[in-house]
Design a protein around this nucleic acid. Structure first.
Length: 217
DNA sequence: CTCCAGGACAAGC
DNA sequence: GCTTGTCATGGA
């Protein structure tokens, strides 16, 4: 089975697309909420809900936690799945509140089991847990989301709809910093929006010419 | 009108 | 372990 040099892939995408300019520019609270709002939802709609929540709470944890579920639902409504998402956001905020929002300390105390702990939170699945590891806890990890699965299928990996299946096959080299991992995920999804929306789009991308150089055997 | 987006989850196999 | 139905709005 073909494999790809992830460092070469990242550098190629970075060279052609520039910095992804993604989540790292937002506050971590924005990311915590946004990662839930955007689940299977257009980012534009998730952004509307996020702005509603920001306006209502200034992203102050105690203010948000004091909202009734109905009030939170009204803020989330534009991005759908509002029952699940309101519950998820409330629970996740309570979880961080209980731990004093000390991301560094949380990581230091829970290195081995943090991912499993995050997965226990209702509304936090594989992708959101990895989003948090990469963008909240600053860990160099790989996020095997929909666009990543489509991309790696084009790069010669076995086509799969399973998050764990791709995740299992991809290990970022030790040389990847967490900033690179954050940017890499942003680039993959920006690439996906441009070249993986429809069947055949990939063939028009810059990666087609680069493919032979990226593949290692 | 139909399809689906930066998933999660429970039920059934 | 893996597949399928459900949750929901708004844009293409």
């Amino acid at each position: 089975m073909p494999t790809v040099d992830l460092t070469q892939l990242y550098e190629t995408m970075s060279h052609h697309m520039g910095p992804s300019g993604w989540w790292p520019s937002d506050t971590k609270s924005d990311i915590i909420v946004g990662a839930i709002l955007v689940q299977n939802t257009y980012w534009k709609n998730a952004g509307t809900s996020l702005n509603n929540i920001k306006t209502a709470t200034q992203m102050d944890a105690k203010t948000l936690l004091a909202l009734s579920q109905d009030d939170l639902i009204d803020l989330i409504r534009p991005s759908g799945f509002y029952k699940n998402k309101s519950k998820a956001i409330h629970n996740v905020f309570q979880w961080f509140e209980d731990r004093n929002w000390d991301y560094h300390q949380i990581w230091a105390d829970n290195r081995a089991t943090l991912r499993q702990q995050l997965l226990k939170l209702p509304g936090v699945g594989n992708e959101t847990a990895d989003d948090y590891l990469v963008y909240i806890f600053d860990q160099p990890d790989f996020i095997a989301d929909t666009y990543a699965r489509r991309l790696f299928a084009h790069l010669g990996y076995e086509k799969t709809d399973s998050y764990p299946h791709l995740k299992q096959q991809i290990t970022l080299p030790k040389t990847f910093t967490f900033e690179m991992a954050q940017d890499f995920h942003g680039l993959i999804d920006e690439f996906g929006k441009q070249y993986l929306q429809h069947e055949g789009d990939f063939e028009t991308s810059f990666l087609v010419e680069e493919l032979p150089r990226l593949q290692t055997h």
